[in-house]
């Protein structure tokens, strides 16, 4: 295992009275892909969203425990959420490009960070699109609306948009669930490329996808972390029976 990037200690999360996560302890390594699997409603997306404090937007959420990134507790009072989210990018289940041009979609992040130099922006846009493996498809239509792209292209654009802010960690919430197999394949290739430079955490319903792209897999069930380990191990000889049953499709 490489160096550990994210550590959670007894992370417990409530939506109002309802417990969504029950004392999660996990260590996510740097510059590798960690996949969260589990049936719907098991808390894996909630957990993902607490890693960049997106759950703060929901007033009823209460969090106990710690999430340490590089040893720093991100739920400490003096942490600035805005700057935290700049370092932890997020890609959503449904591709959500802004109703702006392709260029402006990518340039938005740098712009709000105070970069207004046109030349520099152009540079960032180009590198981000190249890193997201969509440059060749869109380089001639940068001024066109991003909503004119296909679903798969939109999702890669969203990844490019995330890359433009130069995060260290990228969270992906079922990034390929709404895409066709070919687009999914492209996204998976992209994830494979990105893990050279970024720590990636991905939530997926697709077991094959988890097996294909991830180095580590965590199995969640009913708000608890049931099993966590190397992907190969989880998928071939899991220690816990529940994991095996889920992976082989006997429940879930």
């Amino acid at each position: 295992m490489k160096e550990v990037k994210i550590v959670t200690k007894d992370l417990t999360l409530h939506y109002g009275q309802k417990m969504a996560l029950n004392s999660i302890n996990i260590q996510i390594p740097e510059k590798e892909v960690t996949a969260f699997i589990g049936p719907s409603g098991c808390g894996k997306s909630t957990f993902l969203r607490s890693l960049n404090r997106m759950n703060d937007l929901i007033p009823s959420v209460h969090i106990k425990g710690e999430i340490l990134i590089d040893g720093l507790n991100i739920y400490e009072k003096k942490i600035d959420v805005v700057n935290l989210r700049k370092k932890i990018g997020m890609v959503f289940q449904k591709s959500n490009p802004f109703a702006k041009s392709i260029f402006e979609n990518i340039a938005y992040g740098p712009r709000i960070n105070g970069i207004n130099d046109k030349k520099k922006l152009t540079e960032i846009v180009e590198t981000s699109l190249k890193n997201a493996a969509i440059w060749d498809e869109v380089k001639d239509r940068l001024p066109d609306s991003a909503l004119g792209l296909s679903g798969g292209q939109q999702q890669r654009l969203c990844i490019a948009r995330t890359l433009a802010v130069q995060p260290e960690i990228i969270l992906m919430d079922e990034p390929a669930s709404a895409l066709d197999p070919i687009s999914t394949g492209k996204i998976e290739e992209l994830i494979f490329e990105l893990k050279k430079n970024y720590t990636i955490v991905i939530v997926t319903h697709n077991m094959q996808q988890a097996a294909r792209v991830s180095d580590h897999t965590a199995f969640f069930y009913l708000g608890e972390l049931i099993e966590y380990g190397k992907t190969r191990k989880i998928f071939t000889s899991p220690d816990i029976k529940q994991t095996e049953e889920y992976i082989t499709g006997r429940f879930g």
């Binding site: 805005v82 935290l84 989210r85 449904k94 709000i112 969203c158 948009r161 995330t162």
Partner: peptide, 22 residues
Amino acid sequence: PATYSEASLALGATKWQTAVFV
């Protein structure tokens, strides 16, 4: 759609920037 503002917030935009620019 809430996904717009979520995307913007996840990029590290403030609430204000999100409201005005997105």
